[in-house]
């Protein structure tokens, strides 16, 4: 193998490894962490502060409260899975498929519950005392009207009340 070919290979590998390395490092530092509600609540909630989360769960029936504050619609609801619940606050338009029992991924940050107390009161709800953190969501993603239903075997993962 001549020097020219070797040089090309080394350069190619260097560029590829460097590019991949940069991508991995920068993506991890900008990453959103995906968690099911029960998994999140089983972990140390304080360790997630400052990190962007995608919290996946189902909207508890009757938990959606909305009100208009400063020209914008604010809402709060409980996201639950496996009997575990966490309160979510969001603002702005909601997805069309967002309603009771809909499957939702809320993107945002965990904030101390006390920070949202005033907003909660304006929405007419009391923040649960047993969870010190709530989700301040910047984006809600609700399940699309599905062309493709999940395999029946996976339906067992749903909470019992949704079967």
């Amino acid at each position: 193998m001549d020097n020219s070919t070797l040089g090309k290979i080394v350069l190619t590998v260097a560029v590829a490894v460097g590019g991949v390395g940069f991508l991995v490092k920068s993506s991890i530092s900008s990453a959103q962490h995906y968690k099911m509600v029960d998994d999140l609540l089983a972990s140390d909630l304080s360790s997630w502060q400052g990190k962007e989360l995608k919290v996946h769960g189902w909207v508890e029936s009757g938990s959606i409260h909305e009100s208009i504050v400063n020209q914008e619609t604010h809402r709060t609801f409980l996201l639950q899975k496996g009997g575990k619940k966490i309160r979510v606050f969001s603002a702005g338009p909601k997805p069309d498929t967002f309603k009771d029992q809909s499957e939702v991924v809320a993107t945002g940050h965990l904030v101390p519950a006390g920070q949202m107390k005033q907003l909660a009161e304006s929405l007419g709800v009391a923040i649960e005392s047993d969870i010190p953190y709530v989700v301040d969501s910047t984006e809600l993603m609700a399940k699309c009207p599905s062309k493709y239903d999940g395999a029946s075997i996976n339906q067992k993962q749903l909470a019992p009340e949704f079967k």
């Binding site: 991924v105 699309c144 062309k147 239903d149 395999a151």
Partner: peptide
């Protein structure tokens, strides 16, 4: 990717492990 549920998408959340 779109049919197995290996990634989450606004299009569907369904999972089909066999597929």
């Amino acid at each position: 990717m779109t049919r197995s549920g290996i990634v989450q998408s606004v299009h569907a959340f369904g999972e089909d492990n066999v597929l």
